[in-house]
Write a protein that binds this DNA or RNA. Sequence first.
DNA 1: CGTCTATTTGAATGTACTCAAAAGCGGTGG
DNA 2: CCACCGCTTTTGAGTACATTCAAATAGACG
Lengths: 190, 190
Amino acid sequence: MNYELILNNIARHIPLDKEETDYFVSRITFREFPKKALLLKEGQVCNLLSYVHSGALRAYFIDGSGKESTIMFAVPDWWVTDMYCFLNGRPAMMYIEAIENSCIFQIRKEDLDELYIKVPKFERYFRILMQNAYTREQLRVIENLSLPAKERYNNFLDKYPHIARVVTLKQIASYLGITPEFLSAIRKSK
Amino acid sequence: MNYELILNNIARHIPLDKEETDYFVSRITFREFPKKALLLKEGQVCNLLSYVHSGALRAYFIDGSGKESTIMFAVPDWWVTDMYCFLNGRPAMMYIEAIENSCIFQIRKEDLDELYIKVPKFERYFRILMQNAYTREQLRVIENLSLPAKERYNNFLDKYPHIARVVTLKQIASYLGITPEFLSAIRKSK
DNA sequence: CGTCTATTTGAATGTACTCAAAAGCGGTGG
DNA sequence: CCACCGCTTTTGAGTACATTCAAATAGACG
């Protein structure tokens, strides 16, 4: 198994010695998911935090009326889970699917909690991750509130060009909170 | 000074001994802000993280066309800052104002960074805070994407009844991402 | 090649905005 | 204590942004 990517990610934030590294590696498991596979389904227990080594995932939510909203795309070197349910031991509210064949590392909640105790440095690592996730979501809220769909689409293309290449327009539309038909109209008007 | 509220908040997540408590207390400063005072202005350096002991704050953003979007309201026992700029040492993108006479504790970024080193338990404390902030923002994104304004307004009233009592309708509208006129229409139609 | 899904097109509709103005409300000074 | 000022909230008409529904077209995959 190739741990280079994930260990480098960690090394950018905290230094780990050999023993700590080994312990961490012993707590994560590797899985491959073919395109279209579901990693998580609404209602399931969500006790896994996933790291994308390669491929791409999409987290989405289906509301009462059946409308799908994309919460996030996860590309290589990203962590993803239904964080609220993962942290609070609640049944998942969201779906997570592979939008490409994907190689994923996963850690279980109980192992993560133990990791915090055995190697407290990981508190810092995940604090930083959570800070980044928080500020990213906040920026997205601001964008959603203050920009019309067309500019949100342009921003999306600028910010995530690699994702835009991989996903369908329908999925982008559901990330932006508009219908595929309207996104199509936006694209035509450019 | 009355540190009970803030120390209790911390105690709910991590245990501190006397020495650690004293050190923390020595790093925070107390300030009062009268209603309408600005704690932070766009463009200013944002090197303070604020905790609301009493009163209420509002963080907002003004876009290119002059439109104001409320990012968050902070009521007693909440932490608030322009997190992105605080963490990255960038000039502030947002404004933070007191919407009531408010008592605030503040910690400077450098002191916080030192606190993490001297009392690593605070890594855990702020990790948990950041997790909660992240999942809250994510929930808000989902709501904004999937619900019409009327339901977002009802949710807001349910979730933050105490805030709804304190702020103007204009401020609520700007939190929901709609115009005051439209919020007024929504209210009439109830 | 045929089937399934993604994307586009267009018409009709609904949701939310702009602008202008009136009404309500709170504070302040005479 | 009243009159006035400034700001919030409401109202209404006209408009723009975004959706729904139905159907045509284009692409992807077995």
